[in-house]
Design a protein around this nucleic acid. Structure first.
Lengths: 258, 258
DNA sequence: CAGTGGTCTAGACCACGCT
DNA sequence: GCGTGGTCTAGACCACTGT
């Protein structure tokens, strides 16, 4: 809808003023904006106009809306930096055999605030999954569905798949062993596979209704979806799809050229 | 706006039906959807309801809208894979001293379809720029604004900054030398700097009015913004911000753990 | 319960793209 | 000029969240 109407465009004026107030701190982060009816009165516009202004602010990531409560300025939330280097750190741990020592102990302490919903299924690979693994469609996979929470708040959904004949009968296939100390790298190491590389393909989209529900995503917030392939040499040993609220993460990739 | 109204919700029904038609190929990619007034008649709903349905399809990336023309199913467009490995390839070229030979020649052929708008400025570093470079705010920078086109179609906007006292008086500071064979890596190599790493931080947002204008972004399409820092050892030698239509690129990062 | 946002209607005027 | 979407109004009923 690239720019008709050279005139005022009232919904823009309303949005501009609200944006100004939010950025100036007149409306502090996390606090409620005036209600739609208040805004109708203040700016002398119809409700539809107010709602268009609020929709714009939501799309810009400046405001969130909850039914029955109101629209509020986006609270300042701790953003999780998702740096590619975290994989290297995980692997260092595994290689040095230091699981269960200081670093892992620290992790465990952090884990006290974490809870994990898990659901393991054995399924034949879909066409997409097969392509990502480089195997024939129908090859059996162990599909592991996770929902991570911090202090009870849902943070991340993921589906991680392993080739079933690589894990069947091992502790990795037992959901009771999750969360696994040292994570994926450690898990694969226990199966005799040492990760040599990871490929990540991030994209952004609207959340599905399932995701809105599971992650309690407020109106106007998008999700980041990362498709991850874990490699041992040229072989893909794990395929995962990770879904997070886009406003809670900050992707950070390091490309080493030495 | 997480899900009130357990009932039909008409705009959803309209959107669902249109989505079905698009995915089934009843409405081929690139072709126009029925006009809003046609949809009003077909589904017996008010115009606002039709517009909400179309807004949803736009937000999902399935439809694009152009004023005076209509709303059409997203055409199938060649998506550019933005793989991190491309930096390694550039660097290989530079290292092997093969600029001007086959590979570069091929590039040049490709370049025949490219045009580049450029605008160089000498500016003091803003706080953000200074932080990215690791220098004091106010340090002079060469700010290079580029707009890339393929066959005349704007594809990518970028602003690439170099430390002015590193480039002043060199061919790199002359816009007439753009596009530079071999790209950034080659350019920095000519200054005696061999790149050792790159950090990229991708994010996603609505386009600014400037971006809508420069990149001719249709309604409902977002942009990917990549903040790039080019490193020589621990020193940042280039900082760039790259803006592309989100529906035309596919980010692909490889994390080597060997 | 009152107040919030979510959905929907039925009008209206305007700027834009085509023919 | 006609049809397109962009904006705007003034109503209405509903579900959800609080008290």
């Amino acid at each position: 809808m690239p720019t008709p109407h050279p005139q005022p465009r009232r919904y823009r004026l309303v949005a501009d003023e609200l944006r100004r107030r939010i950025e100036a701190g007149v409306i502090p982060a996390g606090s409620l904006l005036p209600s739609e009816s208040t805004l109708m009165a203040e700016f002398s516009v119809a409700r539809g106009t107010v709602r268009e202004a609020l929709a714009l602010l939501r799309a810009e990531g400046l405001a969130l809306t909850e039914v029955g409560r109101g629209t509020y300025a986006r609270p300042i939330v701790p953003v999780r930096r998702l740096a590619s280097e975290r994989y290297r750190e995980e692997l260092e741990q595994v290689r040095s055999g230091e699981l269960g020592t200081s670093f892992t102990a620290d992790q465990r302490v952090d884990w006290s605030a974490y809870t994990l919903d898990k659901d393991f299924r054995e399924v034949p690979a879909t066409k997409v999954q097969a392509e990502l693994f480089g195997v024939e469609p129908g090859t059996m996979l162990l599909e592991r569905h996770f929902l991570f929470r911090t202090h009870g708040v849902p943070q991340q959904m993921s589906v991680s798949c392993l080739l079933l004949d690589m894990v069947a009968g091992t502790p990795v296939a037992d959901p009771d062993n999750e969360p696994w100390p040292g994570g994926n790298a450690s898990q694969l190491h226990s199966l005799g596979h040492t990760i040599t590389g990871i490929r990540e393909r991030p994209r952004w989209r609207l959340p599905t209704p399932d995701e809105v529900d599971a992650l309690r995503i407020p109106g106007g917030v998008h999700v980041v979806v990362i498709t991850r392939q874990t490699y041992v040499l040229d072989r893909v040993v794990e395929v995962a799809e990770i879904v997070m609220r886009a406003d809670l993460v900050d992707l950070d990739y390091w490309i080493d050229l030495t």
